[in-house]
Design a protein around this nucleic acid. Structure first.
Length: 596
RNA sequence: GCGCCCGUAGCUCAACCGGAUAGAGCAACGGCCUUCUAAGCCGUAGGUUACAGGUUCGAGUCCUGUCGGGCGCGCCA
């Protein structure tokens, strides 16, 4: 069934269409006509590509369709292009089409298509730009998922900014996207944290402790210990006389021995109490930290719950039954090399504990079992070696590898005063996300992250990010929004009443006005492209372009001082601009201030 | 050594499933405020897209190799 694509449809269906897709449909119709006439072989499997013209003079849209099809049609590209133009169905959307260069088809929009845009944007409000190209497919985006063993650092910040923006962009493009944080609360690192808290607690009880160098050193460990001491007094202070006797020389082994002794001395319930207190405190801290960064999750999913529910055991058993596991050196290995991984991977260690990978297998299976059409993991680039094994496990469990996309975020290197900021988790010398937010502000930090595509190495200039000057790109965009708000405040102060709905947009004939209208019309396409390629940075670049068009317009033409009819049209245009600036900033988690 | 990511203006980065003359910001230089916020605008200059081949009507984009950078290659998470 063909969709007719007149302006009627485009402007009356409440906002689920994208202008470029409408143009694309017109061209598809033209192609179908040529096929039915036998000019072009039937059922060409070539997708019809239409893109925004990159140069003024090339019209509004351009297509390479004729060049792609020329060979199989046995026609010269330009001749085929002529025929395609002739077959374009009548439409209020396009005013004309012409052949250019080696065979491009340049398409020109009817002025009316632009002139109705401000009203359309006003009617759509916050939803302008959204579309249904995602067809309500259910997508989960999992990101950050840092161990709750300490505060988030700036590396997590990049993943948070990216994941959150991506989820929002996907929603805007018509996907049913949700965000999830996977709480790694089951591993050895958490045991070390619990031990660290307990040792600090013992200090508070007056014990002389030699705190291990490999344990967690951060101040937050003291805070949690203090809470424990305040709430439980000395209930978790057993006889610790032999606690540090004859520990292994090896630091890691000594730590494991201490954990075992701690578990023995406290009993399962006692250790669990300390463990849970540490976890809950840090998860809450992380949640609050991310919330202040503008990042909210629909779900927080506990790794431990996968173990407690038996999901990990079931997954391992099933892999065993399918002969995907084998025993070697007392450990159980997964045959991931059968699925193009470099080598097989341990799932159950010789000591009986499962590896992180084992819970990951159960976790990813669980995600898909929850009914998502697609799951996306955002990982730090240092985890790239894990992609193949996780995908291999999906195959072994009869699931589709294609249902999982792993997106890698490269590291950000901080610069302050032109110097690289040294960071090391080990020494506790890292810049936390909280410090970054307090130093440069949430908006600047989010916008800086948003300005980089994730697979690019990134230099983060702290001085630039916190500068309250024109050097800072976030203010450039926010300033455009504030300026427009200011214009409307001026109107109010002068007592000038405006009824934007009465504006006659045919009065908008200046080149800057056309540029601005064109940019506004492109917004839904930007969202669609950003969603399709998982690149929310496209929204950030679009924002800069839109702000630039506005600032240029602002400097070139008066709004309030114009004659009443023209004034109304211009105010309507900048009001629409304000709406799109606000919508796009919201996608990136950046505020749109009314004054600056 | 093997694998993954990356290499674009002096610096930081874009470039819409391969398209027309590779674009912005910063830094440099020159202009624009008695008028709606100068956190702004306009202009000038800046390039063999690391290098060498290949694929085709067309390559920054795809393929191969070389060089350079980051990361990974644990019964850690």
């Amino acid at each position: 069934m063909q969709v007719s694509a007149g302006p009627q449809l485009f402007f009356t269906v409440p906002g689920f269409l994208v202008m470029r897709n409408e143009v694309c449909q017109l061209l598809s119709d033209a192609l179908a006509s040529l096929v039915s006439q036998g000019v072009v072989p039937s059922a060409p499997d070539v997708p019809v590509q239409v893109e925004r013209a990159r140069k003024a003079g090339h019209g509004d849209f351009a297509s390479n369709l004729a060049m792609v099809l020329a060979k199989r049609a046995g026609l010269k590209p330009r001749d085929l292009a002529e025929q395609l133009c002739a077959q374009l169905p009548p439409s209020g959307l396009l005013s004309r089409a012409e052949v250019a260069g080696p065979g491009f088809i340049n398409l020109f929009l009817a002025p009316d298509a632009y002139q109705r845009l401000p009203d359309e944007i006003r009617a759509r409000g916050e939803s302008y730009g959204t579309s249904d190209v995602g067809a309500r497919q259910r997508v989960m985006v999992e990101f950050v998922s840092a161990n709750p063993t300490g505060p988030l650092h700036v590396g997590h910040g990049r993943g948070a900014a990216y994941g959150d923006a991506l989820a929002r962009v996907l929603c805007a493009a018509g996907y049913d996207a949700v965000s999830e944080y996977y709480i790694n609360d089951a591993g050895r690192q958490m045991d070390i944290l619990a031990l660290s808290v307990w040792l600090r607690y013992l200090e508070l009880c007056g014990e002389a402790i030699t705190f291990p160098g490999a344990a967690y050193q951060g101040d937050y460990v003291f805070d949690i210990a203090a809470t424990l001491h305040r709430e439980e007094a000395e209930q978790y202070r057993p006889d610790t006389g032999t606690l540090f006797d004859s520990l292994p020389d090896n630091d890691d082994q000594a730590l494991d021995a201490l954990i075992s002794r701690c578990q023995e001395l406290l009993g399962e319930a006692g250790f669990s109490r300390v463990h849970r207190l540490a976890r809950d405190t840090l998860v809450e801290d992380i949640r609050a930290d991310l919330a202040r960064f503008g990042v909210k999750y629909q779900t927080w999913y506990s790794e431990r719950s996968l173990i407690d529910s038996g999901a990990v055991q079931r997954a391992v058993d099933e892999l065993k039954q399918g002969d995907f596991l084998y025993q070697r050196d007392d450990a159980w290995w997964f045959r991931s090399s059968d699925f193009s991984d470099e080598k097989d991977r341990v799932v159950l260690r010789a000591n009986g504990n499962h590896t992180y990978f084992a819970t990951d297998i159960a976790y990813h299976r669980d995600k898909l079992a929850r009914g998502f059409d697609h799951i996306i993991n955002i990982w730090g680039a240092d985890h790239h070696g894990y992609i193949k094994r996780v995908k291999a496990s999906l195959s072994a469990l009869g699931l589709e590898q294609e249902d999982l996309t792993v997106l890698l975020v490269q590291f950000a290197v901080l610069y302050r005063g032109g110097q690289k900021v040294a960071m090391s988790t080990r020494s506790g010398e890292f810049v936390t996300l909280r410090e970054l937010r307090e130093e440069v502000g949430r908006d600047a930090a989010r916008f800086f992250y948003a300005l980089r595509k994730p697979d690019q190495h990134m230099d983060f200039d702290l001085d630039l990010a916190k500068s309250q000057s024109s050097d800072n790109p976030v203010y450039y965009v926010q300033y455009a929004h504030a300026r427009i708000c200011s214009v409307f405040r001026q109107l109010e102060e002068k007592g000038i009443a405006v009824k934007l709905a009465d504006a006659d947009h045919s009065l908008l004939v200046e080149s800057r006005e056309m540029d601005l209208l064109q940019k506004l019309s492109r917004y839904p396409e930007v969202i669609e492209a950003a969603a399709r390629s998982y690149e929310p940075h496209q929204v950030a670049y679009y924002l800069r372009e839109l702000a630039n068009d506005f600032h240029t317009y602002y400097n070139a033409h008066p709004f309030i001082a114009a004659k009443p009819q023209l004034r109304l049209a211009r105010l309507s245009l900048i009001d629409a601009t304000r709406q799109v600036l606000a919508n796009a900033l919201a996608l990136l988690g950046v505020t749109a201030p009314q004054r600056m």
